[in-house]
Amino acid sequence: MTLVTGRATSGPLWRVVAVMTARRLVAGLLVLFAVSVVVFVATEIAPGDAASASLGPDAGPAAIEARRAELGLDRPAPLRYVEWLGGLFRGDLGVSYASGVPVADIVAARAGNSLLLGGLAAVLLLPLAVVLGAWAGLRAGRLADRAVSKSTLTLMSVPEFVTGTLLAVVFAVQLGWLPAVSFLPPGQSPLDRPEILVLPVITLLTVCLAHNTRVVRAGVAQSAVGEAAESARLNGVVERRVVWRYILPAALPPVVPLFARYVTFLLGGALIAETLFGYPGLASALVVASASRDVPVVQAVGLLAAAVTVLVNLAGDVVGTLLDPLRRVPR
């Protein structure tokens, strides 16, 4: 039996992970609260409100005042915030100021779309980055390595909207193989037309792949000539086993937090890809909601994005801890 000490960071692995998860979840709730306050204050400071935004420039002050009263925007800001928070605890996200549709309906559909697009990109990102990075890292300095490094560097330096536009022009407008714009006819989900996901996913991958590949490559190249690998080789371990047993386990853990960051980016809605391809996801909803000062929608999307960030980073740290070879040494 292991001696339980007061330090949370030591002890059996499950305990370390459990304590870390609990602490981070509590901290995460505080982060969410802080985010909701910041978002609310920011929307208060921005010029205009949902009344002036929804009626447009032709409405005139009297109509705007009337709409403001109708939406309850004439009441003090702290009161509105507390009411919104109360609704949140009851599981009620409120109603969109702009469209009158329940916020949950707007956000749920789009969150599903974003999850599908970002999730697909994320699922493809990790194996691609590891394979490419390891392949290049094990051939450090050779032609293959230089080719991977050069091409990833090139991809990294091309802005997303250029990549996306080029892809659309070549594969949609010129070749006609794929849709140029990923809109969804009413009544359909992206799963009904998976072809609309191809170009946005490739665009997202080109943005994220480069950085991840380069970090994997650097770790692999370093641990390939590290002490553990060298002594394994001297002990006659075959190279393939050296790679799987010594090089990759040492190279991968530092990549996990980076990968987690990219996953949150992908899931939180990739604005450029959504705009470029007209894909109905969270990010474009957030832009429209901000412009129309639709505070309930902005709040919901902001909180969801913050929650995803907290959870994915937590998952990344858990995985990183589990993968850390030092942690797996029995004490």
Binding site: P47, A53, P61, I64
Partner: peptide, 8 residues
Amino acid sequence: AADFFADP
């Protein structure tokens, strides 16, 4: 852009 017509 979003601020131009925001405040009458």
